[in-house]
């Protein structure tokens, strides 16, 4: 319990750092957002007036404090280009991105762990050599390319789904999931390869350890030696790796959203980057960071539960 509290505290400290870095780096950019908004034709007076209206004439620290207070209450300020509160702008986009990420994570776990176990049990057979080679290849396929291949195979040739035919989870959650399965697989594929390979390697390493011999000496069947002794030990390094993979998956979903035209945070982030809409960029980066740190926290706690040797 104390461990969990300390981890949660660390999480908020990290987020605080991220918020400082993000906010201040965007304030350091030369050129006034007010000028960007009004165009080069604007008079100095009108720029000044707009800056005042946007609160840009206040000191950076004061603006940061105000922004942070807002963020804590769920208010990320106002978008420069849409004239709307950022929160309203990204609320339902966040849902799509989160649903996609969670599905990708779920697929990664559900496929890679049985696959890794299967590969370990078949180790040194032809099938294992084939799967290992196949894994190596899959790891080299970037998710946006596998996304295009999936679109081509399942969308264009087999017509299992309509490319670009995203249905909002508000309309129908089931149909939304039915569509998101494809991008989620594209994101999950390289991770599945990595995790299953890692699990196979750790199972092989654990199988040679002394406690496995002890387990056999007590009359355990091979199956119980594997499921009661080896597997959980082998999963410990896998959990650590999954923690890092989750961060990649959340970041990766931004790219794959584009492949499948999912109206998530990816699209609005990209348009805000080209439109220099800083409040939106800041909000999205901070939110993504929050989910990355949160997933790391969950993994840390899981890890703690699995491995009693960790007491720090």
């Amino acid at each position: 319990m104390r461990y969990a509290l300390r981890k949660i505290a660390t999480m908020f400290i990290t987020l605080f750092f991220v918020s400082v870095i993000v906010f201040f780096s965007f304030s350091l950019i030369p050129g006034s957002p007010a000028m960007n908004k009004l165009g080069t034709e604007a008079t100095p007076e009108s720029i000044k007036a707009l800056e005042h209206e946007m609160g840009l004439d206040r000191p950076v620290a004061e603006r940061y404090g105000k922004w942070l207070l807002g963020v804590v209450r769920g208010d990320f300020g106002k978008s420069y280009s849409y004239n709307q509160p950022v929160t309203k702008l990204i609320a339902d986009k966040l849902g799509a991105t989160l649903l996609l990420s969670v599905m990708a994570i779920a697929i990664t776990i559900l496929v890679s762990i049985p696959l890794g176990i299967f590969m370990a049990r078949k180790s040194d057979t032809k099938l294992d050599i084939f799967l290992s080679g196949f894994n190596q290849l899959i790891m080299a396929v970037p998710s946006f390319f596998s996304g295009i291949l999936i679109t081509l195979i399942f969308g264009v040739v087999l017509r299992v789904f309509v490319p670009g035919g995203y249905i909002s989870y508000k309309t129908s959650l089931i149909r939304c999931i039915g569509y998101l399965v494809f991008p989620a697989f594209a994101i999950a594929l390289p991770k599945i390869s990595m995790v299953s390979k890692l699990l196979k390697d750790t199972v092989m390493a654990e199988s040679g350890k002394d406690y496995v011999r002890t387990a056999y000496s007590r009359g355990n069947r091979t199956k119980s030696v594997f499921y009661k002794h080896v597997l959980f030990n082998a999963l410990i390094p896998v959990i650590t790796f999954l923690g890092m993979a989750f961060a990649d998956i959340i970041a990766g979903s931004i790219i794959v959203e584009q492949v499948f035209s999912v109206p998530g945070m990816g699209r609005i982030l990209l348009s805000s980057i080209s439109g220099r809409d800083y409040p939106v960029i800041e909000a999205i980066i901070l939110l993504l960071a929050f989910f990355v740190v949160l997933s790391n926290l969950i993994v840390d706690l899981l890890y703690h539960k699995f491995d009693p040797r960790i007491n720090v």
Partner: peptide, 8 residues
């Protein structure tokens, strides 16, 4: 910085 995916 490392806690952050490099793409982000």
């Amino acid at each position: 910085m490392l806690a952050f995916p490099s793409i982000l």
